[in-house]
Simulated scan of single mutants.
Amino acid sequence: MNLTISGHHLEVTPALREYVLTKLDRVTRHFDQVVDINVLLTVEKQKEKERRQRAEVTLHVKGRDIFVEQSHEDLYAAIDQLMDKLDRQVCRHKDRVQDHGHEAVKRMQVPAT
């Protein structure tokens, strides 16, 4: 799994990097077939104070890219909300990928006795 954590108008500190890694553990625990993860942390230069810290994740799994973004006035809160969204999307993707088809009882072959 390739992991890239980058910042735009922001220096990614070791504490921030460790926080993102601990939050990503929850996602990779649910679905281990992740190929590539790109995390972008941004501070936007807006006049309004709320929602100027933004976090984005692009998660590449086999056959699909999952993109999630979240804005908040606190970057750690934005990361928390982002990982909640990402976790829901990964669980939904895993549910779609899994083979839920099973043979109906009335179609099963009964062994001849």
Score class of each variant (00 low, 15 high):
Met1Cys: 14
Thr4Met: 13
Thr4Leu: 11
Ile5Trp: 05
Ser6Val: 04
Gly7Ser: 09
His8Met: 10
His9Lys: 07
His9Pro: 11
His9Thr: 10
Leu10Lys: 13
Glu11Arg: 13
Val12Asn: 00
Thr13Lys: 03
Thr13Tyr: 07
Ala15Gly: 01
Ala15Leu: 02
Leu16Trp: 10
Leu16Pro: 00
Val20Met: 08
Val20Glu: 06
Val20Leu: 05
Val20Gln: 04
Thr22Gly: 04
Thr22Arg: 11
Thr22Ala: 03
Lys23His: 15
Leu24Met: 12
Asp25Ile: 00
Arg26Glu: 06
Val27Lys: 04
Val27Leu: 09
Val27Ala: 02
Thr28Gln: 14
Arg29Ser: 06
Arg29Lys: 13
Arg29Phe: 03
His30Met: 10
His30Thr: 12
His30Phe: 13
His30Asp: 09
Phe31Thr: 05
Asp32Ile: 01
Asp32Met: 10
Asp32Trp: 05
Gln33Met: 02
Val34Thr: 01
Val34Gln: 04
Asp36Met: 13
Asp36Ala: 13
Ile37Pro: 12
Asn38Val: 09
Val39Phe: 01
Val39Cys: 09
Val39Gln: 09
Leu40Ser: 15
Thr42Gln: 07
Val43Arg: 00
Val43Lys: 12
Val43Gln: 14
Glu44Phe: 06
Glu44Leu: 06
Lys45Ile: 10
Lys45Met: 14
Lys47Pro: 02
Glu50Cys: 07
Arg51Ala: 13
Arg52Ala: 12
Arg54Pro: 03
Ala55Lys: 09
Glu56Ser: 06
Val57Arg: 09
Val57Gly: 00
Thr58Val: 15
Thr58His: 06
Leu59Lys: 06
Leu59Phe: 04
Val61Asn: 03
Gly63Pro: 05
Arg64Met: 15
Asp65Phe: 15
Ile66Asn: 00
Val68Pro: 09
Val68Gly: 02
Glu69Phe: 07
Gln70Val: 04
Gln70Pro: 06
His72Ile: 00
Glu73Lys: 07
Glu73Asp: 14
Asp74Lys: 01
Asp74Pro: 03
Leu75Asn: 06
Tyr76Ser: 11
Tyr76Glu: 03
Asp80Cys: 00
Gln81Asp: 02
Met83Asp: 05
Met83Pro: 02
Met83Phe: 14
Asp84Ser: 08
Lys85Ala: 01
Asp87Ile: 07
Val90Arg: 01
Cys91Gln: 07
Asp95His: 13
Asp95Val: 04
Gln98Thr: 08
Gln98Ala: 11
Gln98Gly: 08
Asp99Phe: 00
Asp99Trp: 01
His100Cys: 01
His102Val: 13
Val105Arg: 13
Lys106Gly: 11
Met108Lys: 15
Met108Ala: 12
Met108Thr: 10
Gln109Leu: 15
Val110His: 09
Ala112Cys: 08
Ala112Tyr: 12
